[in-house]
Design a protein around this nucleic acid. Sequence first.
DNA 1: CTTGTCGGTGCAACCGATTGCAGAATTCCA
DNA 2: TGGAATTCTGCAATCGGTTGCACCGACAAG
Lengths: 375, 375
Amino acid sequence: MSDSVSPPTPPKQAKVSTRPASRGATLQQVADAAGVHRSTASRALNPETADLISPDVVARIAETAASLGYRRDLIAASLRNSRTRLVGVLVPDLANPVFAPILAGVEAALAKDHYGVLVANAANDVGALELVESLVSRRAEGLILATAHRRDRVLARCVELGLPTVLVNRADPDGRLSAVTPDDRQGMRLAVLHLASLGHRRIGHLAGPQDVSTGALRAEGFREAMMEAGLEPGPMVAAGAYSREAGEAAADRLLADRSLTAIAAANDLLALGAMRALAARRLRCPADVSVTGHNDMPLVDMVEPPLTTIRICHDLIGREGARLLLERIAQPDLPPAQIRTAPELILRASTAPLRATAAVGSRARPKGQAFPKTE
Amino acid sequence: MSDSVSPPTPPKQAKVSTRPASRGATLQQVADAAGVHRSTASRALNPETADLISPDVVARIAETAASLGYRRDLIAASLRNSRTRLVGVLVPDLANPVFAPILAGVEAALAKDHYGVLVANAANDVGALELVESLVSRRAEGLILATAHRRDRVLARCVELGLPTVLVNRADPDGRLSAVTPDDRQGMRLAVLHLASLGHRRIGHLAGPQDVSTGALRAEGFREAMMEAGLEPGPMVAAGAYSREAGEAAADRLLADRSLTAIAAANDLLALGAMRALAARRLRCPADVSVTGHNDMPLVDMVEPPLTTIRICHDLIGREGARLLLERIAQPDLPPAQIRTAPELILRASTAPLRATAAVGSRARPKGQAFPKTE
DNA sequence: CTTGTCGGTGCAACCGATTGCAGAATTCCA
DNA sequence: TGGAATTCTGCAATCGGTTGCACCGACAAG
């Protein structure tokens, strides 16, 4: 009868067993067993300070520690010197496949320096604020935010706290915080120039939510690239969210302009939604309308037709973000840095040359309305 | 080059700024400001003990705390009472889209109880062991493992440590630990019976790695379901990994048996690989060979043909795993529990009725070898 | 033989909150 | 009015390492 507890099982919830499970020996115990003071043991066991202690003593202590199964208690250590080696990662939607590789990159980069990663799913804005507070409570040394809405109380709070913070995938409109983002303008430029080079002239933009930086920047990139290509910027419709459903709805509005022969979507899911909208209108992709996506999500090479898209190396973004953050933690006074990762055009089968005979020609012009204004 | 990187950049690594950034007030400061002892402040600020203190004092302290921006230091609190409210989640491959929803489920369930989630990516077995140690160092109260190979030193270590641990997505062969898994046998049964109901009789199994429980159980499920359907179990080939490439290679071997009219894959990626292998052999899916997957990964409804598969609610698995873990943390002596989540057949277009005239009939029988033995 | 240096250890004060116990203040009951 | 029962609050130990400083012995230089 090691413990008498149990039978009553009080309020079903709390009441953790009293003994702390099999926690190994404490430093004091190791020190006692080795016949030294615990401060000596502490120094001996820390590689950075081990050279202060004579080698034989270090060896003896190390041995004792091993035989006792000693494990440094990071909680206690963190309390004393404020280094928790913990960073928080805030993500708006963990289930979104974009964030998995980012998280993986972050984790990989941080693990090298023995940092721990505390993830939190920030469904909404206020939730995110609370999460930030809780991370601060845990003394996270820094934050990686994948959640930045354009004007964001979370960002404000982070700068207010002076907490080293790095944005990934989305930029800080005010430039107060470091960020690692795909080069959104350039990505959209690649897509538009590709479509233009295929002969398309009436290109529509299926934009993302305009209150997040990717949505806004890609829209800008679209306009600029159209100018660069000497084309009149086509209609633009912003989807309410980065989802297939929102994409389908927005694409449907876009397609009210029957002159379009290509759609550059701000995101793969939107592009897939657009394909649905096309199918619903009995339009073929790419025969009637070419479609480009953005992100190169897993599996978009397996859809029909395989999606031409802009690849963004999310893994790299996460990794770079982590690197930036570690720099900022080490030197908090470093000015914010912006890193853009280069996008890459991935050619697949959802885009095709404009067929002079087909597309516009073969399809009845909408009655009357020549250039339906959208956006 | 918006950042100058700062000339000196000492040893690139350490040298943390001395001041602890803008950490809020300490409990002592709040107490002083409110004119009470810090123990009183502590009790007043803790909902559980606030009723020990007279209401007016509680109010005064709460007010003072708010105005000083006090935030409880969980590190210090954890040191004193051993509750860190932290659990570790070990994942073999964060970038794998299966784990994102699991993680999301875990996070959601734990966040409700104000638990933090420490994620770690355990690329290999030894790495995983180290990660476990580091999580213990951080005093994680429990572990969720998505990584269990069949015989696993990590599992052994967890039971040895007496650390509350729950497996998700994979079971413990020895049943020492709680686990939440999809009902793999049943899932494969659904797939096989579906194929059988379409008239298929020669069905091959594109199995997963046999050293993980999903791979083994689904293979068993396949055999059993074939028996149940009154069919002679077809050839089985195990892929070396759950990847499209491995799936393609294994499927290619499977297809050496030209009599097959259907393939039940242990995983969606394997199924997609199989589709490639079919395409390479100029076989049509589903006209010539039906294919089923497993998992219902995102986007497999958009591939061509849309994949008929078995849906597994990974979100739920994560959620249940977290629930189980919290129970085990609260009552460490609870016996291990096994939960199976029900799979669901998702009908799409990669399976079709066996055409009496087509398939087998239309294709030349392989020279001589009637039933090539594989696996 | 004295003083200075230096390598190696021990001492003790932290870090910031929690909590058993005791004491003070107040109330209650006789 | 005395004594007991309540309340409320303060005291101080504690969690487990870390680290500035002091101390001690030994050895070198003067």
